[in-house]
Amino acid sequence: MNRMRASKDMWLWISGAALVIGLALATAGNRFAAFIIGIVFLNVLWTAGMNLLYGYTGLVSMMTAGVAGIGAYGTVKLFLDYGWSFWFAVPVSAVGAAAVGVILGLPALRLRGFYFVLSSLVIQVALTLVFIYFPQFTNGDTGITQIPRPGLWLPGFGAVDLTGPGFEIILGLLALAGVAVVYMIIRSRMGAFIIAIREDDLLAEELGIDVTRYKVMVFFISSLLMAVGGAFYAVYTGFISPRSFDVLMSMNIWLMVAFGGRGTIAGPIIGSAILVPIPFLLQELYQIKDIFYGSLIILVTVAMPAGVYGTILKWWRVRRQKQNTAVAPVAIKRMPAE
């Protein structure tokens, strides 16, 4: 049974990788389309982190963009100013960003409900101010431009060219890895615990689950995903500024998770795939992006709290449920021995 599931999973990931590579190669001739695909991949990675936090654990964090920003600025600093290899700078600054995120978020994680949301928002706004007012690290409001793409040397392949579709492939595989991490967590006992925390944290604690510990772990892992995404965003677009990582980004990522279907593996992917390209395709109407996303936030909250995929799933379950409803007979049986 377990082996069957494992091999089924394996095929799922392999076809995911094939799809990702196929998408990147198919758009290779059209830089505009390729760029949209690349940004979708980055958002899939970010939404995977947000999904773990919000979709599965029930924590609405508004400081996710700030953490991504720390990862981005940290990587760029190490990469450009200290001459580190990009591939070494990313994990170091991602772990650093996640650690900072946890240290900042730790006191807030003790708070419940709305107070946690508000604290995370306050931290996000403070981080944005820090990005603006510490120009020695961030170049302030102007931002950092012309960040070069890193080179990559693979044993057996030699130097790989990352200016073309190579980089989209890397972003796609990264996104896939992020989704796989979330998937594996959800399948594990930790997954059962964080869902329990989302459903009723007091009851989870009552059953012996160390709620704070799991919240911190989830926060750390999702911060890692956010920060890695931030680092790759920096070298992919070549430009970062405090505005790239402001509260609007946190809200947009939240929206993609909620719109696609929180607490499902496919939902956030669907959300990113639908919502990311829209502002690009609006072209000269790019200005109304905020109005569009803002309206969607309200619409999703009011009309479709389960999201696109969640709604489909629900409908499907109801159909299946109708086919097997059984009632338990009443007869007293022996109590099990201790």
Partner: peptide
């Protein structure tokens, strides 16, 4: 030491099996 609640308390949106699985894992 374990306790029940005056207003019954289970994970009401999860299935019975998932309620029990979570508890078993916690134990």
């Amino acid at each position: 030491l374990t306790r029940t609640y005056q207003a019954v308390r289970v994970f009401s949106k999860l299935t019975v099996a998932d309620n029990l699985r979570t508890t078993a894992l916690a134990a």
